[in-house]
Computed example of a mutant assay.
Amino acid sequence: MELERKFCAEGGALEIAEGAVIAGYASLFGTPDQGGDVVARGAYAASLKRLAQGGGRVRMLWQHDPARPIGVWDEVVEDGRGLRVKGRILTEVAQGREAAALVAAGAIDGLSIGYRTKRATKAGAGRSLEEIELWEVSLVTFPMLRGARVGAKADDALAAKIRAARAALRLA
């Protein structure tokens, strides 16, 4: 995929202006995952606030592998349904190009969270997760929470960029 780039005069940093845009729910409130854990409304609020205050961000990883970041989450917010995410898979990264192609083809659509439990109570077969320190949201083959899914932004421009990325991979 071609990415629009612009040179930032302040500091000379390269700014990525575009990528393969994806969005979905990484977590759904009140829905048990395959281990029986249920995330309570508001469980992410303190963690997201701490990240924002400290200038940190939730990482986008491939299959929970910290050595394989594939993009950036531009939005990570709690809403009435769960933890909604929107971000860009960076196709300058080899794994990012592959991930974008797999998402576009529908081969990968799972999302999964990497976190540390701060506060939970026993609930049925699992736990009620009341406070979570969120570290990362990964694109995964098999999400623990079946409803945690992502979709590619469906538009002709994105499809053209994915075709260009595939062609570039063949030439590399």
Rank of each mutant, 00 (worst) to 15 (best):
I70T: 00
I70M: 02
L83A: 00
D65T: 03
G56F: 04
G87M: 14
Q53A: 15
P66H: 04
P69H: 09
V76G: 10
H64T: 00
G54N: 15
W73C: 05
V72R: 15
M60V: 04
G54M: 12
G80I: 00
V85A: 04
R59V: 07
K86R: 15
Q63G: 12
P66Q: 06
L51S: 11
R84Y: 14
G71V: 07
D74I: 07
Q95D: 06
G80S: 12
G87R: 11
D65S: 02
A67L: 09
V93I: 15
H64F: 05
G87W: 03
K86G: 00
P66E: 08
G71F: 03
Q53D: 15
E78D: 04
H64V: 02
R57D: 13
V93K: 10
R57L: 07
V72Q: 12
V58P: 14
A67N: 07
T91I: 02
R84T: 01
D74K: 12
A67S: 08
I89R: 02
R59L: 15
V77W: 01
P69G: 09
G80W: 03
D79I: 01
R59P: 05
L61F: 07
R59I: 08
G54Y: 12
I89T: 09
M60A: 03
V93A: 11
P69Y: 09
R88V: 07
I89D: 07
L83S: 01
V58N: 08
L90H: 12
A67D: 12
L90D: 10
R81W: 06
A94S: 06
E75H: 10
P66F: 05
R81V: 09
G54C: 15
E78M: 08
W62D: 11
R68A: 14
V76L: 11
R59M: 14
K86A: 14
L61K: 00
D65W: 02
V77S: 13
Q63C: 04
